[in-house]
Amino acid sequence: MQISKRQFIVGGAAALGAAGLPARLWSGTTLEFGELRIDTLSDGYLVMPASFALAGLDAEAVAPILARHGLSPEGPFEPPCNVTLLRDGERVVMFDVGSGPNFMPTAGKLDEALDLLGITRDDVTHVVFTHGHPDHLWGLLDDFGDPAFYNAEFLMGADEFAYWMDPDTVNTIDPARQSFAVGAKNRLEVIADVARTFSDGEEILPGVAARASYGHTPGHMSFEISTGGESVMVVGDAIINHHLAFERPDWPAPSDQDPGTGARTRVALLDRLAHKQMTFIGFHLPGGGIGRAERKPDGGYRFVGMG
Rank of each mutant, 00 (worst) to 15 (best):
P76H: 09
P76I: 04
P76D: 10
F77D: 06
F77A: 06
E78V: 07
P79R: 10
P80K: 12
P80H: 07
C81H: 01
N82T: 05
N82F: 06
V83R: 03
T84D: 02
T84A: 14
T84E: 10
T84C: 10
L85E: 09
L85I: 13
L85W: 15
L86V: 15
L86H: 13
L86R: 13
L86Y: 14
R87E: 15
D88T: 10
D88G: 06
E90W: 05
E90K: 15
E90S: 12
V92L: 10
V92I: 14
V92N: 14
V93I: 11
G98I: 04
G98C: 04
S99A: 15
P101F: 11
P101I: 04
F103V: 12
F103N: 06
T106R: 10
T106N: 13
A107R: 09
G108K: 03
G108H: 06
G108P: 11
G108Y: 10
G108N: 08
G108L: 04
L110M: 12
L110W: 13
L110H: 12
L110K: 13
D111Y: 00
E112D: 14
E112R: 14
E112N: 09
E112I: 11
A113L: 02
A113M: 04
A113F: 05
L114Q: 10
D115T: 02
L117G: 02
L117D: 03
I119F: 01
R121D: 06
R121G: 01
D122C: 03
D122G: 09
D123K: 06
H126Q: 10
V127F: 05
V127Q: 08
V128A: 03
V128F: 11
F129P: 09
F129W: 10
F129G: 02
T130S: 15
T130K: 11
H131I: 00
G132L: 00
G132C: 04
G132K: 02
H133W: 01
H133S: 04
P134M: 02
P134W: 03
D135L: 03
D135S: 08
H136D: 05
H136E: 13
L137S: 10
L137D: 10
W138K: 07
W138S: 12
W138E: 14
W138C: 08
L140N: 11
L141P: 13
D142H: 13
D142M: 04
D142S: 12
D143R: 14
F144M: 07
F144I: 02
G145F: 02
G145S: 04
G145P: 07
D146E: 15
D146R: 15
D146G: 06
D146A: 14
P147A: 04
P147F: 03
P147C: 03
P147H: 03
P147R: 06
A148E: 14
F149I: 08
F149W: 05
Y150H: 14
Y150K: 15
N151S: 08
N151C: 00
A152Q: 12
A152V: 07
E153P: 00
F154H: 13
L155F: 02
L155H: 15
L155E: 01
G157H: 14
A158K: 12
A158F: 01
A158M: 00
D159H: 08
D159T: 10
F161Y: 15
A162Y: 14
M165T: 11
M165F: 09
D166M: 02
P167Q: 12
T169G: 06
